[in-house]
Design a protein around this nucleic acid. Structure first.
Lengths: 161, 161
DNA sequence: ATCCAGCTCATACTAAAGTACCGAAGTGCA
DNA sequence: TGCACTTCGGTACTTTAGTATGAGCTGGAT
């Protein structure tokens, strides 16, 4: 209750001050009128003073209101480098160029995971001989001479994670 | 020359406009005074009009100036995530945990690049025996049993690209 | 039906990788 | 100086990887 009343006062205090100044001014004017303006011809000075006063008053009041209204928000877009974890995507074209068969690619993938030929054979339910054959064939197709180089090339060509 | 003169005009045009309005006003006031204010008692209305006019004038002039001067800019930074290809950074802590010697780490790095033991020996100007020793030792430290597993683990722990 | 690519497995062999153990030389430190 | 550690190199051996070749089987294309 008290807070909202206080806020209301703050919000409209410029209007209150303006009204108060107006009241003071009326007294001043009446006093000036009574004091000096019996004599004819000084009416121009009187009006000039009033004009000056109200001009200044208008400026002051305007500035008081504008001070809180003219807040221009400028949104500046700032590029912030964010390390984005690239989800692995197979380079399909690179993979097709190698002309690997499905089995050979399977073997290659398991190789890249560090499996030995024996482990690959167990994983695919094949004999060691078969794995060796596939491995040998895929080495020829990939133009490498060892599994280590095959793995390095496969990762470089983005056909294995 | 022409440009600076034009700029000067633009800079002070509000003052010029203000002066012009003042001049016009004098004519209007004189006319009003001659037209209506023969009768006594309407002087308060006359002064009231002048007060109102100059208040409005002050406000208008003030706003014109304030429009360009009192603009408080609030800068709001808007984050724009920019995908940046993560430059490889070694996980120093993971590397330290392995307690690899400098030579062993060198061998590991070359392994990860697909080099055979012979190639590593040639690259480091060492004998094949030495490379085998280093390899065997680093396998124990990395708790793996083959170079392919060592490479896979090294990449997974981010100690090689 | 025939042909062919791909998958499977096998054998035999060579090459490379990996293990184990050893010793010499250098380095840093108490 | 002696100790601990690393580096380097060696020998001997086992295991794994890789090559070469052949053969049986299958599904799909011609």
């Amino acid at each position: 209750m008290m807070g909202s009343l206080k806020n209301t006062f703050i919000r409209y205090r410029y209007i209150a001050v303006y009204g108060l100044l107006m009241a003071v001014l009326v007294f001043v004017l009446k006093w000036l009128q009574w004091r000096f303006l019996i004599a004819e011809g000084s009416i121009e000075i009187y009006i000039g003073l009033i004009a000056l006063f109200f001009t200044v008053l208008g400026i002051v009041v305007s500035r008081q209101f504008d001070r809180r209204k003219v807040v221009r928000t400028v949104v500046i877009e700032k590029e912030i480098p964010v390390p984005v974890q690239t989800p692995f995507i197979v380079d399909a074209s690179a993979l097709e160029n190698l002309n690997l068969t499905a089995r050979e690619y399977e073997v290659l993938q398991l190789m890249a995971k560090g499996c030995s030929n024996t482990e690959i054979a167990e994983a695919l339910f094949l004999s060691l001989s078969t794995i060796k054959t596939h491995a040998s064939n895929l080495f020829v197709k990939m133009d490498v001479t060892s599994r280590t180089k095959a793995i390095e090339k496969a990762k470089r060509l983005k056909i294995t994670p």
